[in-house]
Design a protein around this nucleic acid. Structure first.
Lengths: 131, 131
DNA sequence: TTCTCTAATAAGAATCTTTCCTACTTGCAA
DNA sequence: TTGCAAGTAGGAAAGATTCTTATTAGAGAA
């Protein structure tokens, strides 16, 4: 993702490097709040707005994806390859589905140009079922 | 949906009837704000909070669905049958896909109990492409 | 029909999420 | 090293949703 920043003509700042490092290998799809809290220890002057703008910048450069699949805060996904998600109805957890999770069988609405097809499984995650 | 209210043991109030009437046959998936504005004319004393609580009540009773598939306000769907959606990247518009839009081909994550499978087409709606 | 109980509503405050604004700072090309 | 455009901090603002509390009113009981 760091090479991606450079390739997109974006400056490598300590804040950006820290944010990238904080979630580039994280499969849990953290929220901006969660990322911010991870960073406070190392960069106590970091502003919450910087987390948002940086994540938006990464998303605009195609280096991460914003996932808004359930009510509540958006979640950020370092995996920009097309893939589906399982979404927990009660806690909102987002879990990756491997590969192409479904084969589309319906025609899109008239005039709609499809950029990507996603599959979502809705239900209860293991942790919520345990309670 | 009105019979559904009665069947769920919920009181039939003018506010609830108006809200149901305002979007029961609406395929455009309005936001709470949009529903509120439609109702202001007829019920000028209606509170915005009432729109939210009523829609939540309907959703809890299984009489409508809350769709949060893109950033921005949640959209409300009178169609609770399983179906997919086309989501416009630029305006957030939600368009129903007919029938079962896809066949799931991936196993869910370990411990995850699937309640429903949804397909989402992401792209550009006709109106946004025209501009 | 009237009464009564309980659920529902209005109105605004509070909370949460996200974006905006502005002055200050800094990465990096020259 | 310097200069400037891009980036950041911090707080304010905007937008979305939920909560609080006093009041109102549906609907079953009498």
């Amino acid at each position: 993702m760091i090479e991606g920043l450079r390739g997109a003509g974006l400056k490598l700042t300590p804040q950006r490097l820290a944010i990238v490092e904080a979630f580039a290998d994280d499969p849990t799809h953290p929220t901006a709040q969660e990322i911010f809290e991870r960073l406070r220890r190392r960069l106590p002057t970091m502003s919450f707005a910087t987390v948002y703008t940086t994540l938006d910048t990464l998303a605009a450069a195609g280096l991460c994806a914003v996932r808004a699949l359930s009510p509540g805060p958006a979640r950020f996904d370092p995996n920009v390859a097309p893939h589906g998600h399982a979404v927990c109805d009660s806690c909102g957890a987002l879990i990756d589905l491997p590969g192409r999770a479904a084969r589309a069988t319906a025609a899109p609405p008239a005039g709609f140009v499809v950029r990507a097809v996603e599959t979502i499984y809705r239900g209860a995650c293991a942790r919520c079922r345990a309670r």
